[in-house]
Structure formats: structure tokens, C-alpha cells
Computed example of a mutant assay.
Amino acid sequence: ITALVGNEQVNEDKDNGDLPSYVSAFIEKEVGSDLKSLKKLDKLIEQMTENKMQLEEQVLTISSEIPKRIQSALKNAEESKQFLNQFLEQETHLFSSINSHLLTAQPWMEDLGAMISQIEEIERHLAYLKWISQIEELSDNIQQYLMTNNVPEAASILAYMAELDIKLQESSCTHLLTFMRATVKFWHKILKDKLTSDFEEILAQLHWPFITPPQSQAAGLSRPASAPDIYTNLETLFCQLLKLQTSDELLTEPKQLPEKYCLPASPAIILPIQVMLTPLQKRFRYHFRGNRQTNVISKPEWYLAQVLMWIGNHSQFLDEKIQPILDKAGPSVNARLEFSRGLMMLVLEKLA
């Protein structure tokens, strides 16, 4: 208990800053009341002296280093200040030079801007003239091919012109668009009329359209079917008409079905199938329009049966002769489906 009280007293005296009391308490703690413990005083004094010397050395070291560090920091700050002043002077000089240069170059910039505007205007005119020249060149090529009866090449060039027409739709040059469309329309009509006429002649040789069932057609079609040149011409003309598909869609307004059907928009019937459907369309309108006895509103089964019969009569020919041509030509079109779709359009038109 006495030792605890003594320790508390030493700590309290130390905290209060009473140095003599602290020393007295420290000696009391280390030596105590035992006289034999006085032998420790020499060692204690030696230890305290050594601690004192170490503390003095540390104080001297710190006292000598801190001014050096402060002096070094002040020197660095002074150098930084000088560099900053130099940079500010350079910035001021550079700013003045730039302003002077801009003032000197301002008239040149205005003249250069005007020249650039003129160059851009000339480039637009040049591009416009190039388009005109290209259209005229393509038109001349079509004319030359037609004069030499090279219809396939003429049809290919017309297809290319139709693609150019589509690309030009984004242009604001209305006169150029009108000129392109008029040129495409002119040659499209000539080629379409010629190819349609030739195609109809080939179909007539095949006794198209087939009014009777396939079994009854065999005898009548046996001889022309054995002539390979007829089907070769059929394939050639069919493919040439396909080349006019793009220009035909470009020039022909798509047929709009009445809104009451709620049917999605469908692509146009391909051009050669349109030609093949023409005689059947005439027959349908003749029998099921106007004041004909076959046009009875209470007998829809009459025209529906007729359409189904036509589809059945032509299915074999479409599958065996037309579908291979389409597969070879590239477009993913089903001949029988396209033919049936064209006939169903007649039914929808009548119901409208």
C-alpha cells in the first residue's frame, strides 16, 4: 500500500511540475530507506548523466538541422518565384505576339474564307455536272445496246440507273432528281414494253394461260415442251424482266389494300409474274365485274373456285419451269406463292 501511495505521489508531483519533489520521489523510489541501496547511486548517476548527454546531443542536432531545412526551403521558394516570374513574362510576351499575329492575319482569314466558300460552290457545281454527265452517258449506253439488240446489257444499265435514282433521293437538287427520274422512266417504258411483248409471245407458244387441268395440257404441250429453245428464251426473258424490278417499283405506285382488311403492306409482285398474270386478270375482271351473269354477289364460291382452279392448273408449270429460274437468278421468291398472291389480290379488290 505504501508503494502504491508513493507511486501515485510521484506521478502527481510530476504532473504538477514540482521538480524537487519529483527528484525526491524518484530517489525514494529507486533507493528507498535501505542504506544498502545507496550503492545504486553511482550507477543511477552514471545512467542519468548518459541520458542527459544523449538529450543534449539530440537538442543540438535538431537545433542545427532545422535552420538548414528552413533556409533550403526558403531558397527553393525564391527560385520557384523567379521561374514563375519568368514564365509570366514569357506568357505576356506570347499573348501580345498572338494578338498581333491575329490582327495581322484577320484580313487574310476573311479572304481565305471567301475563297473556300467559292471553292465549295464550284465543287458542288462540278459534282452536279458529273451527275448529269453520268446520267447522259448511261442513257447513251442503253441506246447503243438497244440499237445492237443487246437487251440484257441495256436492262443491267437501267437497273444501275434505278439504284442511282434511289441514292439521289437524299439530295436537295430537285431538278437533278427530276432529270434522273424522267430518264429512268423513259428507258424503263421502252425496255418493259419490248420485253413484255417478247415474253408474251413465248408464253403464247406455250399456250399460256392453262385453262384446262394439267392432265388435259399434256397432249397440247408435248411438242413445244420438247423444244429447248423455247424454254431457253423463256428463262432469258424472265431474267431480263427481273432486272427491271427495281425501276418498276420506283415508278409504279404500290397498290394499297383497304384498311378494313388490317393486312400488313406486302411487296409488289415480281414483274415477270405480273406479265404472266395479265391474261388471267383480264378474264377475272370480265367474268366477275360489271353486269355479267357470273358476277353474282351471293355466289362468292364461283370466283373463289375459279381462282383455286387457276392455281391448280399452273402449279406444275410454276414448280418445274419457273421456280428453277428464280433459284438461279437469286431472289428468294416462291413462284407458286407469288402467282397465288397475285390472284388473291384480285379477290381482295373485288371484296373491297
Rank of each mutant, 00 (worst) to 15 (best):
K167T: 02
K167M: 03
L168D: 07
Q169S: 10
Q169M: 11
Q169G: 04
E170R: 11
E170Y: 11
S171W: 04
S172N: 13
S172F: 05
C173A: 12
T174N: 11
H175Q: 11
H175D: 08
L176Q: 09
L176K: 05
L177W: 10
L177Q: 14
L177T: 09
L177P: 02
T178M: 12
T178H: 14
T178K: 14
T178G: 03
F179I: 10
R181A: 10
R181Q: 13
A182R: 08
A182L: 12
A182H: 07
T183N: 11
T183W: 06
T183Y: 04
T183V: 12
V184F: 04
F186Y: 12
F186E: 07
W187A: 04
W187C: 05
W187T: 00
H188Y: 06
K189Y: 00
K189M: 12
K189H: 04
I190F: 12
K192F: 03
K192A: 09
K192I: 01
K192R: 06
D193H: 03
D193V: 08
K194P: 03
K194W: 05
L195C: 04
L195M: 01
T196L: 00
T196Q: 12
T196I: 04
T196S: 15
S197W: 13
S197C: 05
S197L: 09
D198Y: 08
F199T: 01
F199R: 02
E200P: 03
E201I: 02
E201N: 02
E201G: 00
E201H: 00
E201F: 01
I202L: 05
I202F: 01
L203A: 11
L203E: 06
L206D: 09
H207R: 14
H207E: 09
H207C: 13
H207D: 15
W208Y: 07
W208S: 03
P209Q: 11
P209Y: 02
I211D: 14
T212Y: 10
P214R: 09
P214Q: 13
Q215G: 05
Q215K: 14
S216W: 11
S216M: 10
Q217G: 06
Q217F: 00
A219K: 15
A219R: 12
G220I: 04
R223A: 10
R223G: 03
R223E: 12
P224L: 02
P224D: 05
P224N: 02
S226R: 14
A227G: 00
D229P: 00
D229L: 07
I230H: 10
T232W: 00
N233E: 06
N233D: 13
L234G: 03
E235A: 09
T236C: 10
T236M: 11
L237R: 01
F238Y: 07
F238A: 09
F238L: 05
C239G: 00
C239I: 14
Q240Y: 11
L241Q: 10
L241W: 08
L241A: 04
L241R: 04
L242T: 12
K243V: 02
